[in-house]
Amino acid sequence: MSNNPYQDDRGNKDASITKTGGGTMQVSTGTDHAMSTDEAFLIGDSMTGGYGKSGPDILHDCTIAVNKGEIAVIVGPNGAGKSTAMKATFGMLHLRQGSVRLDGTDITGLTPQARVAAGMGFVPQTSNIFTSMTVEENLEMGAFIRKDDYRQTIEQIYDLFPILRDKRRQPAGELSGGQRQQVAVGRALMTQPKVLLLDEPTAGVSPIVMDELFDRIIEVARTGISILMVEQNARQALEIADKGYVLVQGRNAHTGTGKDLLADPEVRQSFLGG
């Protein structure tokens, strides 16, 4: 039970008076002191922290970085803090140490919304589309903060994901799993981000769709957008990765290019099933 009396609903779930599923996003920013910098485009540098100001640490001196136009993949066993590490770079974790920098600027103190404005795009693992709105409206909402004409960006996204052009008038909730992920990525691309964060984009989709999604992600990276991605399907993900991070219990266990990691016997043994 939460300590906040306003959040105590006594287990009431009366649908006639209350609507379930409110926002759950945690906003937690800042460390309490600055750290040294590096050259990567986006870097979460030696991050230590957990959810909430008083929560236990989930990340321990964990560093994640991605270079311009490259794909970085975070893999690791369940509960290793993969998603947490990515959320930390997006201002959803309270960092007690470390810093996050985008293109050389320290963004550790920015809220997630401000990071979007600064050029980051984030695709959550679940609830990543507006199900009741059409595909096109989803894209428009992605461009909400843009004041200029975004029609061309929509066209670019339709070129990237041609299936969405056909389904533009359909509610996004009616699409298949793979198509939904495309909408989600498309929505995040609408702000023309410089770096895109993907939280397990292939969770729950079939292997064929997964391959297709990876192809698209490579295409996105080719347009010069850096991609930081958390993946369950470690082998496939590392195959397309320029850089890979293996996390174990919130710590960097192995770091290297995708190929290196795939070739590393220890990594193969422990995380890729031999």
Partner: peptide, 22 residues
């Protein structure tokens, strides 16, 4: 309208609406 759509978006998915800058 943009505002109307943002209302629907907020109703649909609060977190995502926030991430979209609504």
């Amino acid at each position: 309208t943009r505002t109307g759509k943002s209302m629907r978006a907020y109703s649909d998915n609060e977190d995502l609406a926030l991430l979209s800058g609504i």
